[in-house]
C-alpha cells in the first residue's frame, strides 16, 4: 500500500494555505491528522498532486471557553479534546465522544476539524456537532463565513465547504446539562454500527427544558433529529415521550447494509442505542 506521488506544502499561516489552495486548484487537498486521507492515498483511492498540511498554522490549535461559548481550532486533536480540563467542565460530551473514536494513537493525530470536515458518515464528531448546534467557521481568500453543523452535510463526503475553503474553527455553546454519546461498534477502532449524541437539560420544574439529538452512521450524513428534539423539549421525560422520540428519529434514518449488518438490524440497534443515550443523559441532567 504505497501512495502516489505528490508535492507537500506546509504553510505557516492561514492566508498562505488559502493562497496555495487557490493556486493549486483541484489538484490540492488539505491534510489535517491524515488518518482518513492517508489510508485512502495508500489505497490510491485518493491521488492528490499536492498536500497542504495545516499543522504549522498555530492559530488553528486552541480550545477557548468564553462568555458561554466554546471555540475550538480545527487542528485540535482528539487527544487534546480529551485532555482539556476546561472542556471537561464546559462540554463533557465532547470528551465522552472523543474517547469512543478510533484508538489512542489515532486520537493523538486525528483532529476535530478533519473529523467534521471530511464528510465521512462514519465519523463521530459531525453528529455531536449537530447535537451541540455548532457553527463551523470557513475561511476563503475572499473572507470568512459561518455554516451551522446542521446545514453543513449534503451527502457522504459532500459538504457545504468549498474546495478552496478551509474549516478553521468550531464554535458551540457551553453545555453543562445531561449528556450522552452512546456508540455501538464491533471493536475498538471501528466506526459506529449506530451511535447517538443526546443533550438534555432539566428545567426548574423538573421537566426537560432543552433537548438535542443527533445520530451517527445511520444515513449518508449525520442526522439531526429536529422533531424528536422539539418533542422532548418542554415535556416530562417518561417512557412514552422517549418512545415517541425514538420512533420519530428512526423514521428519518436510512442506514445501508454493510459488514456491520443489514439495515433492519442497524435500525433496531439505533433505537436501542438512542434510548440508552436518552436515559443516560436524563440521569445526568
Amino acid at each position: 500500500m504505497i501512495p502516489g506521488r505528490f508535492d507537500y506544502h506546509q504553510p505557516d499561516s492561514l492566508t498562505a494555505a488559502l493562497t496555495l489552495l487557490n493556486d493549486l486548484g483541484d489538484d490540492a487537498r488539505v491534510i489535517a491528522g491524515g488518518h482518513s486521507l492517508i489510508p485512502m492515498m495508500k489505497l490510491r483511492l485518493a491521488m492528490p498532486e499536492h498536500l497542504v498540511d495545516l499543522k504549522a498554522i498555530s492559530d488553528l490549535k486552541h480550545i477557548t471557553v468564553k462568555d458561554g461559548s466554546i471555540s475550538i481550532g480545527a487542528m485540535t486533536t482528539q487527544a487534546e479534546l480529551i485532555g482539556s480540563a476546561e472542556l471537561a467542565l464546559s462540554a463533557p460530551i465532547v470528551k465522552e465522544t472523543a474517547l469512543q473514536i478510533a484508538d489512542p494513537q489515532i486520537r493523538y493525530q486525528g483532529t476535530i476539524g478533519g473529523n467534521v470536515a471530511n464528510g465521512d458518515p462514519g465519523n463521530d464528531m459531525p453528529a455531536l456537532m449537530q447535537c451541540l448546534d455548532a457553527e463551523f467557521q470557513l475561511s476563503g481568500l475572499d473572507g470568512q463565513r459561518t455554516v451551522k453543523a446542521r446545514e453543513f452535510y449534503e451527502a457522504a463526503y459532500f459538504t457545504a465547504r468549498d474546495d478552496l475553503e478551509i474549516l478553521t474553527e468550531i464554535v458551540f455553546p457551553v453545555c453543562t446539562g445531561g449528556y450522552a454519546y452512546e456508540k455501538q461498534k464491533r471493536k475498538i477502532g471501528d466506526y459506529a454500527t449506530a451511535a447517538a449524541a443526546v443533550l438534555l437539560t432539566r428545567g426548574a420544574d423538573g421537566s426537560c427544558s432543552h433537548a438535542s439529538i443527533a445520530l451517527t452512521n445511520l444515513a449518508d450524513t449525520p442526522i439531526y433529529c429536529e422533531d424528536a428534539s422539539k418533542a422532548l423539549m418542554n415535556s416530562g421525560i417518561d417512557d412514552a415521550s422517549i418512545a415517541a422520540a425514538v420512533k420519530s428519529c428512526l423514521e428519518i434514518i436510512d442506514p445501508v447494509d454493510d459488514n456491520r449488518g443489514p439495515a433492519a438490524f442497524k435500525k433496531h440497534a439505533a433505537g436501542i442505542v438512542l434510548k440508552r443515550a436518552i436515559d443516560n443523559a436524563w440521569s445526568r441532567a
Binding site: 455501538q184 454500527t193 449488518g261 440497534a269
Partner: peptide
C-alpha cells in the same frame, strides 16, 4: 456470532 447475526437469531425467535 457477530452482533447482527445474534440480533437476527433473537429477532427470528420473536424476542424483540
Amino acid at each position: 456470532h457477530d452482533h447482527w447475526r445474534i440480533w437476527k437469531t433473537a429477532n427470528d425467535l420473536g424476542l424483540h
